[in-house]
Design a binder for these strands. Structure first.
Ligand SMILES: [Mn+2]
Ligand SMILES: [Mn+2]
Ligand SMILES: [Mn+2]
Ligand SMILES: [Mn+2]
Lengths: 224, 224
DNA sequence: ATTTAATTTTAGATTTGTCTAAAATAAAAT
DNA sequence: ATTTTATTTTAGACAAATCTAAAATTAAAT
């Protein structure tokens, strides 16, 4: 029985970043990772070599890299911890869903597995975090919620905002102002062919306009 | 307005260790700290110099050292976090009081002040941790638990046995038999006016009777 | 008061993670 | 097919925190 190896916070942050980047693009570059982690490409290359040595990454210089099975497994456990802590902060400590990310960025590195499993139980085994992202179970499995972005939501269909693609401060400010948050019920009343901007209607009858750029980053779920 | 400086986990662990050591002995040595932190005296000396440079420590080589006011202030905030997390683990996540220390040793380094103040509120502003140690408030103040003998403990107040007056072999035999030891949690359920004998209840619901003579020699501490 | 022992500090290395500047390689443009 | 540009990697350095071995200082013993 081999004891679960401990990885540094830095290592964990790299694994998580690579996981997220290869989820969206499929292919990940050194620059992508440097940009995501606010560091330098040279530092990324250094770390890629270390991750390869630990068998967490498949890497050949100049050719590319991707997580190994073990690397993905570790990444998923970090993501599990991140999202469970976010859920805790919002549900139990009354934080806003837009102020928990930074704190979870630290909490995700607390090592105790027993702690996170107890927390999961205490929270009632939530399926998704406050941003609508799925929470992997202790085996790393999770069920992707069926969702589309607002651009692809059929007209006059009531749907619920379930996750946000671009979670930058600027985006969150815009959404806050327009009155769009997780759980908000919306329907698309009109789509302008000219610029793909949309008119959305809320439950309270209010109508707002959002750009194509915004619409592509707001994901909703709805019944068929 | 100066932003609160961030200290490394290592720095925080040193401050906390020195705080605890100077609490008991008054005087602290390089070896004490090395022993407490499972490290080498040479490493301690290195860190003492760094702490001095940060004005967290008053230090003159070969002569001795002690925390500065600022150093003590930081130490108390780490202790506050440590003990609040321990309380959380025991009260909310059903951990045993004997298995929370290691986890709190990591959690105490999470930096968000807002988090710890929200946690404090969520827990109902507890006065002491699962080991009976006082929890400093957000200004670093804490109230030492009140210490009285069992005769003077108010009815139905949960208290912790903190010291024994008469430590004769006969007394210790009696206490051992009744199940009373340092750290035992007890409350007084009934006091008989006839002979000042008491009925005590333990956490495990067991009830025992002790004489006035015994009660006068068992000291307990409790909050308020 | 010397000698001996313990404690503390320095000197010099090591590890981890980062950086800048320069070189190597790949991709894009002419 | 060259040339130019962008990306990636190496080379060399640095800060933080630790270590071992040796030197400096203080404390204890004879
Ligand atoms: Mn993180
Ligand atoms: Mn999230
Ligand atoms: Mn600690
Ligand atoms: Mn404690």
């Amino acid at each position: 029985m081999t004891a679960a190896p401990k990885y540094s916070s830095s290592t964990e942050n790299y694994l998580k970043a690579i996981f997220h980047l290869q989820k969206s693009d499929g292919i990940v570059t050194t620059n992508d990772v440097a940009n995501e982690l606010q560091t330098r490409p040279a530092s990324v290359t250094d770390m890629l070599k270390k991750l390869k040595a630990q068998k967490l990454l498949l890497y050949e210089k100049y050719k590319g890299f991707k997580l190994s099975n073990e690397g993905r497994k570790v990444a998923l456990q970090i993501i599990r911890k991140h999202r469970l802590w976010e859920f805790f902060l919002v549900e139990k400590l009354n934080f806003g869903w837009d102020e928990v990310h930074e704190i979870a960025e630290e909490l995700e590195h607390i090592s105790s597995k027993k702690l996170i499993d107890r927390l999961d139980e205490y929270l009632g085994f939530p399926k998704s975090d406050p941003h609508g992202d799925p929470i992997p179970d202790s085996n790393g499995k999770f069920t992707l919620p069926k969702q589309v972005d607002l651009l692809n939501l059929p007209l006059n269909k009531v749907a619920e905002v379930s996750s946000i693609g671009d979670q930058s401060a600027e985006m969150l400010e815009l959404l806050g102002h327009k009155g769009i948050a997780l759980g908000t019920k919306v329907e698309v009343k009109k789509k302008f062919a000219f610029d793909n901007s949309l008119e959305l209607k809320f439950k309270n009858q209010l109508i707002v306009t959002v750009s194509e750029h915004v619409a592509k980053n707001v994901f909703v779920k709805y019944d068929e």
